[in-house]
Structure formats: C-alpha cells, structure tokens
Amino acid sequence: MSKAHSGLLLVVAVALVDGEGRVLVQQRPPGKPMADLWEFPGGKVEPGEVPEAALVRELGEELGIEVAPDALVPAAFASEGLGGRHLLLLLYVARQWAGVPEPRHASALQWVKPAEMRALAMPPADVPLVDALERLL
C-alpha cells in the first residue's frame, strides 16, 4: 500500500445542459492555477458541507444562478493525484436553473456539445468526464 496523501480534496462540478444538449464550460482566469483551461463550473466542498449544498453555493458565487439541490443528478467522478494531495471530483448534471450564467470568477463562458470539449484544453481531472457525459447526454 502506498503512503497516504496529506489530504483528500473533494471538489464538485456541474454540467449545465441547455435545451440543445450543449454544456456550459468556463475558462480559468489568468494568475490562477491551470489558468486559461476550460472546466466545468464548481468548487471545493467546505468542511461540514454536503456535496450538493457546496455546488449550489459555488454556482451562486461563480455564475450568479440558482440551482435547486434536487435538480443536481450525480453523473460521474474523477480521481486524480494533485501534488501531495488527492483530488476527488464529483460531476453532476443539471438541466434546470434560475438566472442567466455570467462569468463572475472566470475569463469566459461557452456552451459546447460534449464532443466539442475534446478540442478544449481542460484540467486533467475534467478530461475523463467528457466520455461519461457523451454517454449520458
């Protein structure tokens, strides 16, 4: 058995799916780790938070939209070493939300079909989730 990581980083993300089967991705801003890469909106789960509550909070902060916890459908996960820590990324799908997404913490937003995501530079943990989304949508 290998040496344990210094910590598990639990992250939640969402594939917001519009009526045309497109998914919203956001571009990481300059100066941040993995700057300019395209990713699913979301963020870290804080201590004491359940994943769905964390995602509802993050979507309000990052995109200015409201998503009901019961509108979040678990879809896939990714497990990735990240320096001395280990990232566990839980991906949900949502087809209903209130408000119009705006890039509050991102350089840009775009709506793309899952197959089009292959042409985007994405963080390593997001890449395997594209296959899962293609099968689901």
Rank of each mutant, 00 (worst) to 15 (best):
L63F: 02
P74W: 09
L37P: 00
G21K: 07
G48I: 02
E116I: 07
L133W: 09
L72V: 01
L136K: 11
V12W: 00
R57N: 07
S6Q: 13
G48P: 04
P29S: 08
E134H: 04
A78G: 03
E66P: 07
A108H: 00
E49T: 07
E46C: 11
M122K: 08
K113A: 13
H5T: 13
E116L: 13
Y92H: 12
L59I: 04
A78H: 04
D126L: 05
A13N: 11
A98F: 06
W38Q: 02
D126P: 08
P124T: 07
P47Y: 05
A53V: 09
G42R: 04
Y92E: 06
G31R: 00
K32N: 11
A106E: 03
A13I: 06
A4F: 11
E46M: 14
V100H: 10
P69S: 13
A108K: 00
G60I: 11
E66Q: 15
E46Y: 10
G7C: 07
A4K: 15
A13W: 05
V50C: 11
A53S: 14
G60A: 14
M122V: 12
P29Q: 01
P128T: 11
Q26N: 09
L133Y: 05
V12H: 02
M1W: 09
S79L: 15
V14P: 00
A115Q: 15
L90Y: 05
L120A: 03
A35G: 06
I65K: 08
G84F: 04
P69I: 09
R118E: 15
P101V: 03
D36H: 13
G43C: 05
L136T: 10
A98E: 14
L88T: 10
A121Q: 13
E20D: 14
P30G: 08
P74N: 04
E116M: 08
G99D: 10
G7D: 10
V56K: 02
P69Q: 10
G43S: 02
E134Y: 03
G21C: 03
Q110R: 15
G7S: 12
Q27F: 00
L109A: 00
A71T: 12
G48T: 07
G83S: 04
I65V: 15
R57K: 08
S107V: 00
A94Y: 04
E52A: 10
A94D: 04
F40L: 03
D126H: 15
S2D: 13
A13Y: 08
L8T: 12
G7W: 10
